Simulated scan of single mutants.
Amino acid sequence: MSLVGSYVALSKPLALVFPVLLLAWLRFGIGGAAMLHWLRRPADEPPLSRQTRRLLFLESFLGNFLFTLCMITGVKLTTAVSAGVIMAAIPAAVAVLSWLFLRERVAPRVWAGVACAVLGIGLLALARGAWASAGEATSLAWLGNLLLIGAVLCEASYAVIGKKLTGTLGPRRITAIINLWGFALTTPFGLWLAWDFDFRGVPGSAWLLLLFYSLAASMWTVWLWMTGLRSVPAAQAGVFTVLLPISAALVGVLALGEHLGGLQLLAFALALAGVLLATVPSRAALRMGGASRR
């Protein structure tokens, strides 16, 4: 999630060079070329069932395609305050969906971690709002807020479906297949936009940034997320999505020259406390682990 937030922040210059859907198409194409060898089915893995194929499509459609469109378009239409507050709901949305669809028991400590995460990013959003000009809001801010709520649900669905998939498929194969679906979904738009796009006018630095963005967004982060989901409940993993807006803000401060004040530092502390609450083993768990080793 830290890496996701980093490439989201660093992809801002790319969005100024490439149209959003062309950028998405190039991302999936470059990422797919880098992991063609991950598509091969291992000998110990069962053939894809109809349900697994359906889940793989939904994972890509919701987590890759719709999330990107909702997030980028939503942020353009609304204010930084609204975007930060709404995206702070991702951990809670993951916990609720995992309880509803995976029948996971969400421990009180995880709910407390979710609450800290939401409060921390809410404070961060309010702090960022102090820098935002009043002119950021548009007459379509309500639509932007709805799109951001859609992005929250897409990201939460991505975590829950990913947990389901890791029960039958390996992380590398999941990563490669959902990227292939993303490439298929964006190809009609990508080809149409590429027809009139002046690729010769793209500077070399943008191509290097595109390479990093493609490998990070399509390959590295997805593989790390799916690997972690194999051994961590979805509700607990969802708390880590708090690191997405945190790392994006830190990259903005360190690489893009934005200001960091006391309220932002308090927000980071609360959010990280939420992660610790949800992930550090309890005393009972440590005692059980020690007993099992003996």
Score class of each variant (00 low, 15 high):
L62P: 09
I86Y: 03
A159T: 14
L244Q: 11
P203A: 02
F28L: 05
D196S: 13
A156T: 03
A95W: 01
F183Q: 05
L193V: 06
W99D: 06
W192L: 11
S2E: 13
V280T: 06
N64K: 09
W225L: 11
L169S: 01
W195E: 10
T186A: 09
F197A: 13
R173T: 00
S2M: 15
L265M: 12
R50E: 07
A134N: 13
M288T: 13
L102T: 01
L272I: 13
F18M: 10
P203F: 00
V110A: 05
Y158K: 14
V8Y: 04
R200W: 08
A194W: 00
L124E: 00
W181A: 04
I178R: 15
G29R: 05
S60A: 12
A93V: 02
C70R: 08
M35V: 13
W38C: 12
W220I: 14
S231E: 09
A267R: 01
L215G: 01
L272R: 02
A267L: 05
W181P: 05
L97F: 09
G252H: 00
G289D: 14
T227R: 15
A117V: 02
D44W: 04
L36W: 00
R103L: 13
Y158T: 04
A89D: 12
P203K: 05
L209R: 04
A248Q: 02
V239A: 03
W195S: 14
L224E: 15
S133F: 10
G31C: 07
S292N: 13
W192S: 12
T166E: 03
A130T: 15
V222E: 06
A93D: 06
P19N: 05
A92S: 10
V118W: 06
W142R: 03
W99E: 07
M71I: 10
G63T: 04
T138F: 08
L124C: 07
S157N: 07
T175V: 05
V118L: 12
V75F: 01
T187C: 09
V152H: 05
L58K: 14
W220G: 03
L140M: 14
G63S: 06
A273G: 06
